[in-house]
């Protein structure tokens, strides 16, 4: 079986790759493109460690076939910071010690940013339900939820003209 050629945009840059039809988008990001920030914790959509944003919606990249990405726009953890400037969600994860081992962190940050991009003022409950697809085994979620709420507050302040 010959491989399929796919053209996409990844973190703002045009990207082409060859893939097997049965490969997941996550396989291609990690093994072909070298973007190993998205993690595979389960391969079945149950942990969220592979969360990326596909055409504006967050998805588990392990549950997207690589050829489906043709012509689509993908945003991964590697594109969340602007150059060396961390996104407020990233900064707040650091300040709140919202990570221990850090393996689930990229998925949480992509998911949390996706939440704040559409809901600038979520309640604690909204944060918890939005992030329910992301498993963390280290933190008990407490500091993650606080970091996201604090990042939301900071983003609201940034958006408010002084």
């Amino acid at each position: 079986m010959s491989k399929i050629r796919v053209s996409t945009t990844v973190n703002g840059d045009a990207a082409e790759f060859l893939c097997e039809s049965g490969s997941s988008l996550l396989d291609v990001l990690r093994d072909t493109m070298g973007l190993t920030g998205s993690k595979e914790g389960c391969g079945s959509g149950d942990c969220g460690a592979c969360t990326v944003v596909l055409d504006g919606e967050m998805v588990c990249s392990c549950l997207v076939l690589a050829p489906e990405a043709e012509g689509r726009t993908i945003a991964t953890i590697e594109g969340v910071a602007e150059g060396s400037v961390l996104h407020p969600v990233q900064q707040k994860f650091l300040e709140h010690a919202a990570l221990q081992c850090g393996f689930c962190t990229p998925g949480f940050i992509v998911a949390a940013k996706a939440l704040l991009d559409r809901n600038p003022n979520p309640t604690e409950t909204e944060v918890r339900y939005w992030l329910a697809g992301n498993l963390c085994r280290c933190t008990g979620y407490d500091k993650i939820v606080r970091a996201v709420l604090d990042a939301a507050a900071e983003l609201r302040q940034e958006r408010t003209p002084a």
């Binding site: 920030g37 998205s38 991964t76 590697e78 961390l86 990233q90 994860f93 650091l94 850090g102 962190t105």
Partner: peptide, 11 residues
């Protein structure tokens, strides 16, 4: 920390 919030850390 920065390596881990940017996806750069190697697991």
């Amino acid at each position: 920390g920065v390596d881990k919030v940017t996806g750069r850390a190697l697991y």
